[in-house]
Design a protein around this nucleic acid. Structure first.
Length: 586
RNA sequence: GGGGAUGUGGUGUAGCCUGGUUUAACACACUGCCCUGUCAAGGCAGAGACCGCGGGUUCAAAUCCCGUCGUCCCCGCCA
């Protein structure tokens, strides 16, 4: 029997027609005299009715079990009155079976294939092919396809060329750990899997391709999180003869198109913009979730001479004091607040100061140290109402920013302050060009060392602290969707940057000399952006983890329970590669 | 490298704090029988777990303690 239709696509206009559908037995309801089967394929479910008239077929139908693979020829008809199921897209019709073929049977399943039952992720990953049969997954991957397809459509229309860059490439010194691939022919030498096609896409600009994109697989040998896998896909874009605004406009248009196609949603462009400095001050994060308020305010000036020595001494040591107001937070118990303290401890904060504002006044672990005017100023700055809770952190800048930023998010989530139906896009701009690395005692590029400074001509070692980069991150609902920059296209500027970063000529030449050399042969001004496709899809599908958008992801311990990777390899394989194993423990 | 949560029939959970009325409970799935309009079908019957693993405390451990392993979340890390 040749399939003529997908289950979920059959509609009333097929009533009276004979069709053939194929799929998996999703559920069966055997009434003795009549058997109903919900047949599932990737399009959805269709109810099949087996009637006892055809004795031979009915007997086979009685023995159907979950996940048997069958094909059915039948007659589409309207369901009898009062048996219409409005929860199904095919709920007002059904297929009366004429012919049944069992194409394969199935063992009893290790878990139910249902969107209603939550199974441990470990088991789901081991039997990923069963997990992926769940309707929600089928939906997710249809959506992912729609999204990447629309990205391609859009960029093609805009005149971009899709060009592939190599997976087997050169290890780069900075950034994430590389995955290394031993070279058989050059024994002792290694390829590296790309962390991103960064250098190659810049070289494609120098090569004159003008507009490039790629849905590029990238690899980073770092620890995993809900939104991080060691291999992931990014929408990688690079353009010549453009400025920051051009790249940002393109990304806005692209995302607007994607959201229109994926969710039929009109998102507002251009997106709001916030400077990096402002984002860190108001939200304690370089990827602010602006779906709720609870903004952070700085009180370093106010508490400079505070009698509360934790505050004043923190400021004296070059630190800061910041706080935020939790609406209706006065109802938090002492132990809940202790929980917050423990939470900010993880970010290096030593303690959390708090004040409950109620009708009967201010209650606090520290209020006795405060002057009335000080509390008054805080109350008006933070717009505090009776019943609210104010919390402060005093410490070095980074700890305060991170601690309060994380606490703001945690409380926003736990108190249900976040509207899950909102999509808040935001550009974070005016990043610092470099960051002082206390441990290594040297400057580090905040983005990467090929990022153009905003004022290249006046940049010196002395004023680099204030230097901003032509870099931009696009943030959606508190998730960093992507980022990019205008690149340095002039060799002398690139040299100046590398000099400030303390990268010697030899090291630069060894690590990415091919890019530096290419810059000397007529490199056009260029810039680009890279967006995390997995994250974008997860946000659109409202999934908490990108693993729900990746067919075969790894566990947090970087294992694939399905294939069992990673595994040890044959001695013969090692020998061919000229390698000998010595497990080093230190 | 560190912190937290968690692990109980095939699946999801309860029981654990406060050890013994536990022959480890419930739901779903599964098996058999009944049933001609169900749709997360229903009824009846049944099978299925030495409670992640190892050790300890105790007359007695799913329950308390120590260790270990897996999974998840987070910090570090991710230019």
């Amino acid at each position: 029997m040749k399939r003529s239709s997908y289950c979920g696509d059959v509609r009333e206009n097929s009533v009276g027609k004979e069709i053939v559908v194929c799929g998996w037995v999703h559920s069966r309801r055997d009434h003795g005299g009549v058997i109903f089967i919900d047949l599932r394929d990737r399009s959805g479910l269709l109810q099949i009715v087996f009637q006892p008239k055809n004795e031979f077929m009915f007997k086979i139908a009685e023995n159907l079990r979950s996940e048997y693979v069958i094909s059915v020829k039948g007659l589409v008809r309207n369901r009898p009155d009062n048996t219409i199921n409005s929860n199904m897209s095919t709920g007002n019709i059904e297929l009366v079976a004429i012919e049944l073929e069992v194409l394969n049977t199935s063992l009893g399943l290790p878990f139910e294939i249902s969107d209603y039952v939550e199974t441990s992720e470990e088991l789901r990953l081991k039997y990923r092919y069963l997990d992926l049969r769940r309707p929600n997954f089928q939906k997710n991957f249809v959506m992912r396809h729609k999204i990447s397809n629309e990205v391609r459509n859009f960029l093609n229309e805009e005149g971009f060329l899709e060009i592939e860059t190599p997976f087997l490439t050169k290890s780069t010194p900075e950034g994430a750990r590389d995955f290394l691939v031993p070279s058989r022919i050059h024994s002792g030498c290694f390829f590296a899997l790309p962390q991103s096609p960064q250098l190659f896409k810049q070289i494609l600009m120098i090569a004159g391709f003008d507009k490039y994109y790629q849905l590029a697989k990238c690899f980073r040998d770092e620890d995993l999180r809900a939104d991080r896998q060691m291999e992931f896909t990014q929408i990688d874009i690079e353009m010549s003869f453009v400025e920051q605004e051009d790249v940002m406009n393109l990304v806005e248009k692209m995302l607007a198109r994607v959201f229109k196609i994926a969710l039929n949603l009109d998102i507002k462009i251009p997106f709001d913009r916030i400077s990096y400095e402002d984002a860190m001050l108001r939200y304690g994060s370089d990827k602010p979730d602006t779906r709720f308020d609870m903004e952070i305010k700085d009180f370093s000036k106010l508490f400079k001479n505070s009698e509360f020595s934790v505050f004043s001494s923190a400021i004296l040591k070059g630190g800061i004091v910041r706080g935020l107001c939790i609406p209706n937070g006065a109802s938090f118990s002492r132990s809940e607040i202790d929980g917050f303290t423990k939470f900010v401890n993880e970010y290096g904060a030593k303690g959390l100061a708090w004040i409950k504002i109620t009708d009967s006044g201010a209650e606090s672990n520290i209020v006795k140290y405060f002057k009335k005017e000080e509390i008054g100023t805080v109350i008006s700055e933070l717009n505090v109402n009776s019943g609210d809770l104010i919390v402060f952190l005093a410490d070095e800048k980074k700890i305060v920013e991170q601690g309060l930023g994380a606490l703001r998010l945690k409380i926003g989530k736990e108190r249900g302050l976040i509207d899950k139906n909102k999509f808040n896009f935001l550009w974070v701009v005016d990043f610092n060009l470099m960051e002082w690395d206390q441990k290594e005692q040297k400057w580090q590029a905040l983005h990467h060392p090929f990022t153009a400074p905003q004022n290249a001509q006046s940049l010196t070692k002395e004023n680099v602290y204030f230097a901003k980069a032509k870099a931009y991150d696009v943030v959606l609902n508190g998730t960093e969707l992507g980022g990019g920059s205008i690149r340095i296209h002039e060799n002398d500027v690139q040299k100046k940057i590398l000099d400030i970063l303390g990268v010697s000529d030899e090291l630069a030449k060894e690590k990415f000399g091919f890019l530096l050399e290419a810059l000397t042969y007529g490199a056009p001004p260029h810039g680009g952006v890279a967006l995390g496709l997995d994250r974008l899809c997860a946000l659109i599908c409202k999934e908490d983890s990108i693993r729900e958008m990746i067919a075969f992801p790894k566990t947090q311990k970087t294992i694939d329970p399905l294939s069992g990777a990673p595994t040890s390899v044959d001695a013969q394989q090692l020998k061919e590669l000229g390698l000998r194993l010595a497990v080093v423990k230190d």
